[in-house]
């Protein structure tokens, strides 16, 4: 099995598109952070609420710190990271079909199940690597450029988490983000087994993610009824890690739903992949 995963790793990381996501993060994050540094915190202090606070309180401490900008980066980039994940996961099976190598792979001794499992594994590893890249780069660069400090959580009202709490919250938030992105990878794999053109699953998955996201976020009563059935409703679960107290019940429910969606997408993908006549 490990040999199969290794082979999939080599195939995946030999493609240039695999690196697009990492390059994008490595370009966007420094740009964002340098912009914030040059802005000298005006982004934060120009809000009406900050002014109300400043008129009423002496405010001390470094609020524009590495933790705050990392949280900001998460809010900004977690909407775009699915696209990079889909680029790789959506290509796993459909890409081979397009290249005409899928039939050759499947006539080798490893079962379809093992081949599929290796492709799932590499898609999930890539997802984890992408979120890890975001975590390491944003926290590392953020702390170097802005230092550490208590974390201002942007929600209704003012919530400040101590440095220790902030570290714990990031340790909870990133794995939750990995899980949410894992569902996107699973969906991309599902669409990847349906078609023989790699572009289809990429665009299809992104279309589903964007439409679901709009329905999840738009406060229209019709959409409110649909929301519980969309995985994007639960994919923001990582944001709950920054609330105080941490809503563990809500997080558990979201995690269960995300796991169920992942199992459903992967189960359906395997069912189709296992029964499908591979003609290319």
């Amino acid at each position: 099995m490990f040999r199969l995963i290794r082979l999939e790793w080599i195939k995946t990381f030999n493609k240039l598109r695999t690196y697009i996501g990492f390059i994008a993060i490595c370009v966007v994050l420094p740009l964002l952070f340098i912009g914030l540094k040059l802005d000298k915190g005006r982004f934060l202090t120009s809000s009406a609420s900050y002014n109300v606070l400043e008129q009423n309180f002496h405010i001390m401490g470094n609020l524009l710190n590495g933790f705050f900008v990392s949280q900001l980066a998460m809010y900004f980039l977690m909407v775009h990271i699915p696209f990079f994940i889909v680029l790789v996961a959506g290509d796993q099976i459909a890409g081979e079909a397009t290249a005409g190598t899928l039939r050759m792979v499947l006539i080798r001794p490893p079962s379809r199940m093992r081949i599929f499992a290796a492709k799932v594994a590499i898609s999930l590893i890539y997802t984890i690597m992408m979120v890890l890249c975001l975590a390491v780069l944003s926290l590392g660069l953020g702390i170097i450029l802005f230092g550490t400090g208590d974390l201002l959580v942007r929600e209704e009202g003012l919530l400040i988490l101590s440095e220790q709490q902030a570290v714990c919250r990031f340790l909870i938030a990133y794995p939750l983000a990995m899980l949410a992105m894992g569902v996107v990878a699973a969906l991309a794999l599902l669409l990847s087994v349906l078609v023989e053109n790699a572009i289809g699953p990429i665009i299809g998955t992104m279309a589903i993610v964007v439409i679901s996201f709009i329905i999840s976020e738009t406060p229209i009563s019709l959409f409110v009824k649909i929301r519980p059935f969309l995985f994007t409703t639960y994919s923001k679960v990582w944001q709950k890690a920054f609330l105080d107290p941490i809503p563990f019940n809500d997080i558990t429910i979201s995690v269960i739903y995300l796991f169920l969606y992942m199992v459903l997408f992967l189960g359906a993908a395997f069912f189709i992949f296992n029964r499908r006549d591979i003609l290319s």
Partner: peptide, 28 residues
């Protein structure tokens, strides 16, 4: 709506109206 951890601040005052507040973490 203003949830902040317990804060420790050092205040320095000197006549006639010099005031300096110092804190290691966030404080208001």
């Amino acid at each position: 709506q203003v949830r902040v951890p317990q804060m420790e601040v050092t205040a320095f005052f000197k006549q006639p109206d010099k005031l300096h507040l110092q804190s290691t973490g966030f404080a208001m």
